[in-house]
């Protein structure tokens, strides 16, 4: 297969693994953008989703907004932000944050709303204060869906950070665009494969983290819930 030999010839070339445009440097740029954007998106989206989920007020607006934002073309958002703020790191990261907030917020909101009303009633009934209801009952029970939201946000950010290279910043997407510019297909394909691998690794890491953090009582509840 010449596709594989393409890849191996590029990936096993030692010169591609050093320097400011080497794989380690590009990878850490990519992860850097992802981490910063995701952290800010969680810092904004999680409390908003939790507050709206807890009070039940503004839920329709939130769901509508989240659906609307999903229809936004990533490339359009990216180029608009660059058009407004100019070239640099801020525009792509802003675009990544805008894209990551809706899934985090919608996941948190949906997770809290999906809890049986009787469970929340019991929490108040045994004498929990509102913040205790939220922190000790609603959020722990919403964790599977919260993680779902953060996971899809993370994937979207990893994927969109690739496109961000189009507006002139670093990250693994550079290989794709630089390769396309000079018709170096081996470089394009290698960049794409690296991004795909990164996305899968990030996804698997989140699944593992979710297993660690989510109460086993919720997973067994799920398997029982579907059978009844």
């Amino acid at each position: 297969m010449d596709f594989v030999s393409f890849l191996t010839s590029w990936l096993f070339d030692g010169t591609h693994w050093t320097g400011s445009d080497g794989v380690p440097a590009r990878l850490s740029e990519h992860l850097g953008y992802t981490a910063v954007a995701l952290a800010i998106a969680v810092a904004v989206g999680f409390p908003l989703g939790a507050a709206i989920g807890h009070t039940g007020r503004g839920g329709l607006i939130l769901v509508g907004a989240a659906n609307g934002l999903r229809a936004l073309p990533t490339l359009g958002v990216l180029t608009i932000v660059v058009g407004i703020a100019g070239i640099g790191l801020v525009p792509p990261i802003t675009a990544l944050i805008v894209l990551a907030i809706p899934p985090v917020m919608a996941g948190t909101y949906a997770g809290i709303r999906a809890i049986e009303p009787i469970t929340v009633d019991a929490a108040r009934g045994v004498g929990m204060r509102e913040w205790e209801v939220l922190l000790r009952v609603e959020i722990p029970n919403a964790l599977p869906l919260i993680f779902g939201g953060v996971r899809s946000a993370a994937l979207q950010v990893v994927s969109t950070a690739t496109i961000a290279a189009f507006v002139g910043v670093g990250g693994l997407g550079r290989y794709v665009f630089d390769g396309l510019a000079v018709q170096d297909y081996a470089q394009v394909a290698s960049g794409a494969v690296l991004v795909a691998a990164l996305a899968i690794i990030v996804d698997v890491l989140f699944i593992g983290l979710q297993r660690l953090v989510v109460s086993p009582g919720l997973t067994s509840a799920k398997s029982k819930g579907t059978s009844s």
Binding site: F3, S159, G173, L180
Partner: peptide
């Protein structure tokens, strides 16, 4: 999970 751009640019090679 595979980013769309990656899939789009890899396909011709495959």
């Amino acid at each position: 999970t595979i980013p769309s751009l990656a899939l789009i640019v890899v396909l011709p090679g495959i």
